[in-house]
Computed example of a mutant assay.
Amino acid sequence: MIREGECGAFNPLILECLTAVAGDLEKRLNHGITGREISIDSLHLSEATLDNGDAEASSRTLELLDYERMNYFFASMSNEVQFEFTEEPPMIVLSDWSDHKLDLPEIVMDPYNDEAFCATFGKENLEKLSRLLRATTIDDPVIDMEMEATVGDELRWFHVLARALWSGPSDPVYLGSIGKLIDVDDRQAELIDLQFKAYHDPLTEVVNGAFARKIIAERLGSGEACDRHRDRHVLALCDLDFFKQANDTYGHQFGDRVLKHFAERLQESVRGEDVVARVGGDEFLLCMECPVDPRPLIDRIHRSLEGDFEGFPLSVSMGVAIAGSDVRDYDELFRRADVALYHKKRGGRSGYVFYSDLDEEERDLLLEGAHTALSGIDRDESDQ
């Protein structure tokens, strides 16, 4: 059919190559020859055929063959999967890196319905990639995205860079795509680790004060969409009484273990969506949504925190402020909890005080003496 022109116009060099392998092609395919081996044989055959061609055509074609060799070389040396996808017939050709890394053949027919191919890349990921490619244009054909793929028994992140192929320019039809998938899992893990370190306290691994402020400020909100009568939050500052004695008596390494233990107890005493943060040396913050009376909740949390750790008694003072219709600002809420905590520390420690239980005179007097955790002053040290 090709020789008789029924399949369109072909380059004469391609016709010579096809004619030369016609007698041997069926035998090779029946022996399970891989796409990679076909490519190598074709390169060798093409070079032999070019010996009889004109010089200009031979030079240009040899350049293309060398370029093809380089593509295979660099694909094998890097964590990349190069691919070519055709719409009709639906088929994807993968670089040989995929064979030993992804355990996929180099040629996959009907990849969107191939069980092994979909298991590796995920049906939803493939559908998203297809939508993005089909949404491109001739003038803007490139897309990039990140997706997870199964490599061995683990999920790894890949960066996908692909270019859609369109017929055109009039009435363009989507023909397929070319592109590559780059293994970026190690880089992704480093990024996640850096983000974790930026938002969390390095010792206790709860969130730090700056990130807690951002989260709580967003939750408190200030727009009309927020129901200020039903959406009530409780902010509590928790301070370990006499923590300085733990460092002075048993050493700072022991003190660090006390802080880590206390942070774990805090997290165990609240829900997963509640905020637990370290905002000072031995001072921690809790923020919880609580549309009902918060006193039973605070009482339960306080009782769960006190006890001992390796013989060191754990005594906890708490100052509590409620965000409701009268206050939605994080800084004001923090200030109120801090004033209540200072009142408790001065009044004997080991317990909790609600800011709303203080009268106006007490609030004004305490405001001048209260020191927030952000000032870096140890409360126990200043009280003694």
Rank of each mutant, 00 (worst) to 15 (best):
M1E: 13
F10M: 07
L15D: 08
A22C: 08
D24N: 14
K27P: 03
G32R: 01
R36W: 00
R36K: 04
S42R: 06
L45E: 08
E47T: 11
T49F: 01
N52W: 06
L62W: 05
E63V: 12
L64F: 03
Y67P: 03
S76N: 15
S78L: 12
S78D: 06
Q82E: 08
E84Y: 07
F85C: 07
T86A: 11
M91T: 15
L94Q: 10
S95D: 05
D96P: 14
S98Q: 07
K101S: 11
D103C: 04
L104F: 04
P111K: 01
E115D: 06
A116Q: 11
K123N: 03
E124Q: 01
N125D: 00
N125S: 03
K128Y: 03
K128S: 05
L129D: 09
L132Q: 14
T136L: 01
T137R: 01
V142N: 13
D144R: 12
T150W: 13
V151P: 04
G152C: 15
D153Y: 09
R156H: 14
R156E: 10
P169S: 04
P172K: 04
G179A: 03
G179I: 07
L181K: 15
L181N: 12
Q188V: 07
I192V: 15
V206T: 05
G209W: 03
A210H: 02
A212I: 04
K214T: 09
V234N: 14
L235D: 05
A236W: 00
T249N: 12
F254C: 02
D256C: 08
R257T: 15
K260E: 11
H261R: 12
Q267D: 07
S269N: 09
E273H: 03
A277I: 06
V279A: 00
L286Y: 09
E289S: 09
P294H: 08
I298T: 08
I298P: 06
R300D: 09
L314H: 13
S315W: 04
A321Q: 15
A323H: 02
D326G: 02
F334D: 04
A337Q: 04
L341T: 07
G348L: 07
Y355W: 10
E361D: 12
R363M: 03
A373S: 15
L374V: 05
